[in-house]
């Protein structure tokens, strides 16, 4: 999949906004939203929140996890652990990028948060590369990979799946040779 398609999926995530207009409840296909009252928090899918923000019809509240303290703790945990830490959202990379692009002014300490997210993503990617190399070296033919985010999986998909495909093919040939030797 392309990165923008993963972003498309991320845009269905729910965020809280503060509208500056009034409107009745709206019955969207993906669910009911509203009613809208000025400065009353209301939950919307991200794609709609971004659209309203771009029309200057609302302010977006950053998700609970998007604050410096939480992210610093997360970064530390990620640094200390050999495994992958659970992320606050399976779309944390996409949501951060989307919000920073259109609503950075609504997010306190936006620059610091951007940096923290990037650091966390980089830490995880380095771990991922190490894991992948380990998997291939150990001739693994399946693995469990909890706590990876959607964008991270998408980033390594072609590499890991194709490498495992080829490794498996060659392992099968080797197994066949061992079997043939065994039957002689």
């Amino acid at each position: 999949m392309e990165a923008c398609e993963i972003e498309f999926l991320a845009e269905d995530s729910i965020v809280t906004v503060l509208p500056n207009f009034s409107e009745n409840k709206i019955y969207l296909i993906s669910g009911d939203v509203g009613p809208f009252n000025p400065s009353m928090p209301t939950d919307l899918p991200l794609w709609l929140a971004i659209d309203l923000k771009q029309r200057q019809k609302c302010r977006i509240q950053p998700p609970k996890w998007m604050n410096v303290e939480t992210l610093q703790e997360l970064k530390q945990a990620e640094n200390d652990s050999a495994l992958f830490c659970p992320m606050p959202d399976p779309h944390y990379i996409e949501i951060t990028q989307l919000l920073m692009n259109c609503a950075a002014e609504d997010i306190p300490h936006a620059d610091e948060i951007k940096t923290l997210i990037k650091d966390i993503a980089d830490l995880r990617m380095a771990k991922l590369k190490k894991s992948m190399d380990g998997m291939i070296k150990e001739k693994a033919t399946n693995a469990r990979l909890d706590n990876l985010s959607m964008m991270e999986i998408n980033l390594i998909r072609p590499l890991l799946t194709q490498a495992l495909d080829q490794s498996y093919r060659l392992q099968c040939l080797q197994d066949e040779q061992l079997q043939l030797a065994g039957t002689e």
């Binding site: 001739k139 060659l170 392992q171 040939l173 080797q174 066949e176």
Partner: peptide
């Protein structure tokens, strides 16, 4: 068979 598999495994890191 052994040689092919081992070669692929060893070279993977560089490709990655």
């Amino acid at each position: 068979a052994e040689g092919l598999l081992q070669a692929f495994i060893s070279r993977f890191r560089k490709v990655m």
